[in-house]
Amino acid sequence: MRSHKMLFGLQLGFTLAVCAFLIVPVVLSILAGLTSNYFVGLESGLTLRWVFEVWDGYRDTIFRSIGISLACLLVTLVLGVPTAYVLTRSGSRLSRVVEELLMLPIAVPGLATALALISAYGGMGSFRTSWTFILVGHVLFTLPFMVRSVLAVLASIDLKTLEEGAASLGAGFRQRFFDIVLPNCRNGILAGSLMVVTLSIGEFNLTWLLHTPLTKTLPVGLADAYASLRLEIGSAYTLIFLLMIVPLLLALQAIARPRRKRFIRDDPVPEST
């Protein structure tokens, strides 16, 4: 019994250390963003000066990132949900190929995708310099997450039979799609949406090559700040970024928790009444 307790203690200690490794730098960076002079330490006093400085200098990148992420969400919803639906329902070899292809942009480094986009469309001046150029990259990168998230939910319910049930009651294709398919993959759409927005706001690998001086996003601004400005400003900027992204991540965690049981095919349910 004692050795079990010791093993438990060792594992707990290790896990706590891992947790510290992940969380301590976040806390440090928050503190640094609120400290007058990080080199001196907390004695120099807390201040919002750096946060305001970032807000004044980089406000536009924040709004641009929010705008792009919402546009990205819209496009991935329109493209991704029907795609996931077709992939679930058809189940043919073709759909396996389509799924494989769609996942490529997350298998291939963002750098390669960005260079490919530039080599194909870099010459189209107005497109190259517009924010939609970045949007295209973000959609490529986030679309697989939307598709997979919806696919996961659709795979856990017997969509075919549910649709047959609706059809037997007289529902046509459109009615089935809006009454049965969409409501039943709501959780997948929600999780996918949060993931898409989170990833789009933080996307750097593609964006760094796709952006122009007039289309800087938040992470591009962050990289700028890290490279050229004092630590406190980088930290304050990071703080703003965390304020945007942490609620999204917490929401993601909340919906990832086990849900109530869903309709599952041929599941014998014992009578309890």
Partner: peptide, 20 residues
């Protein structure tokens, strides 16, 4: 807490390394 940094972008993680 362990899964919070799940979607931190690489730049921010670079900064976390600098903090450490």
């Amino acid at each position: 807490m362990l899964t919070l940094p799940l979607a931190f972008p690489g730049v921010v993680i670079g900064f976390m390394v600098i903090m450490l």
